[in-house]
Design a protein around this nucleic acid. Sequence first.
DNA 1: CAGTATCCAAAAGGATACTG
DNA 2: CAGTATCCTTTTGGATACTG
Lengths: 117, 117
Amino acid sequence: MKKSPCKRNDAYAAMCTCRDMLDVLAQRWTALAIGAMEEGPQRFGQLRSRLEGISPKVLTQTLRRLEDKGLVIRTVYAEVPARVEYELTPLVRSAAEPLSALRTWAEMNSVRPSTSV
Amino acid sequence: MKKSPCKRNDAYAAMCTCRDMLDVLAQRWTALAIGAMEEGPQRFGQLRSRLEGISPKVLTQTLRRLEDKGLVIRTVYAEVPARVEYELTPLVRSAAEPLSALRTWAEMNSVRPSTSV
DNA sequence: CAGTATCCAAAAGGATACTG
DNA sequence: CAGTATCCTTTTGGATACTG
C-alpha cells in the first residue's frame, strides 16, 4: 500500500491522521519494540535479544520508522566499540494513555487475538 | 506478516491483544469503511461508491476481516436482485472513544500525516 | 446486485553473510 | 557492536473480467 485516499471530508481526514499512527504502530514489531524500551534506553543488541526472532534488518527498519515519526531518539556514542542507544520520546509516552484505552477496550470485548501468547 | 511473536510476558501479551486490533484498523481501507458505515447500514454497492477507488475484491476482503473480528454484521436479504447490508456492531462503536483519544493525541502532537489531505 | 476468479505489483517481513 | 547488502517469501492491495 502506498497512500491512503483521504480527501472526502473532515471526518475521513481526521480518521486518516490517526491512521498514520496506526500504520506505524501496527507494523510487525513496533509495539513490541516500544515495550522493550519502556524501562529506559536500549542498545541495538539489547533490543535484538529482547525481541527474540527479529532480524537486524527488520529491527533497523522498525527503529528508523519510529525515529522518523519522532517517537524514538537514536544516540550514537563515540566509543570503541560503537555504542548506540534508542530511547522513547515524551511524545510516545504521551500516547500510552490512548493506547492503553484501546488495549483495555480490546480486552474487555474479548477481541480474539490471533497473535498473543 | 503472519503471527506476532507474543509470548514473553504479560506486558507484551497485553500489547499484542491491542496489536491485533491495530492490525485490522491499519489496513488500507478499514478506517474509511468504518467511517462510511457510521450513519447506518450500507449496501455493498453503496460502500463501493463511497470508497472511491476501491476494487470489489479488496472491499470484500476488508468487510470479511471486519466481520471476522465481530466489528461488522453482514445481512443478506432474500430478494431479487440480491441485497446485502453491512452495519457496524456495538463493539466497534464502543471503540470510538479510545480511537478518538488516539486521534486527538495524533493531532495535538502534530504527527505528520503522510496520508490525510 | 454482490460478489468471485485471475493475474499482477508493491510492500513488508525474513534469513544470512558481510563490514566500518 | 551496530548495522548494511542481498536475496527470497508472504502479505496486501489492485485492475479487470466474469457469474449466480
